[in-house]
Every structure is written in structure tokens, then in C-alpha cells.
């Protein structure tokens, strides 16, 4: 798998930004990606050293649609979150903007 297929996008949320203070950066990754794949991908794309990776599979939320007569229900896609801890002193910037820092 190509590095850019493994890493789907950075997660830019309050919680993710809080993690950046302790060298932990959060990404949305391919649901089938392994920690090893993620490590290689991150190191390749951002030229940093990864110390630790935590992953978690996030189940998509159930959604009900009540539209005229027909009531259907569905589910948002499942996805995988990876929290990458970088070597001290390193950081990740995207297009010159460090999204993860306040």
C-alpha cells in the first residue's frame, strides 16, 4: 500500500490539538492499515521519527432517515484512528501551517 493510501487525513479537532502538546498527532487512516504500515507512511511523508503508535477502530454512527412515508436507517462508515507519538523536538506541519499547535 502506498503511504498516501494508508494515511487518509490529519484529524483537526480540539482533542487532537491538545495531544500535539505531548508530541501525539492524530490521523484518520485506512481501516486495514497496520501499525507498521502507519509508522512507515508517517515517517515517509513527514520525515519524522515515530516512537509509538496507538490505533483505535471507530464504529460509524447509526443514522435514521424519516423521509415522507419511507423510513430508512443507515450507518456512517467505520474508520480507524491512529495516534502517533513523535520523537521529542519533532513536529508535523501541513502546507506551512502547523495544524496541531494552538
Amino acid at each position: 500500500m502506498d503511504a498516501r493510501d494508508v494515511i487518509i487525513s490529519p484529524r483537526i479537532t480540539e482533542k487532537a490539538m491538545a495531544g500535539a502538546l505531548t508530541q501525539q498527532y492524530s490521523f484518520v487512516v485506512h481501516p486495514h492499515a497496520t501499525k507498521t504500515q502507519i509508522r512507515h507512511a508517517i515517517e515517509e511523508i513527514f520525515k519524522v521519527n515515530v516512537i509509538k503508535i496507538n490505533t483505535v477502530n471507530v464504529g460509524g454512527k447509526k443514522r435514521n432517515f424519516a423521509r415522507s412515508a419511507k423510513r430508512t436507517s443507515g450507518k456512517q462508515s467505520d474508520w480507524k484512528k491512529a495516534i502517533v507519538t513523535l520523537k521529542a523536538g519533532q513536529k508535523i506541519e501541513l502546507g506551512g501551517v502547523n495544524y496541531f499547535e494552538q
Binding site: R11, I12, T13, E14, A16, M17, V97, Y99, Q102
Partner: peptide
């Protein structure tokens, strides 16, 4: 902005 509660948005993201 998704991922942030109202009023908790960092200025950088807001400007983006």
C-alpha cells in the same frame, strides 16, 4: 467547524 465546540476554535483554524 467540525471537531470544535463553539468558542473553542483556535484562531489559526478560524482564519483558514
Amino acid at each position: 467547524v467540525p471537531g470544535f465546540r463553539p468558542g473553542k476554535l483556535p484562531r489559526k483554524i478560524f482564519e483558514q
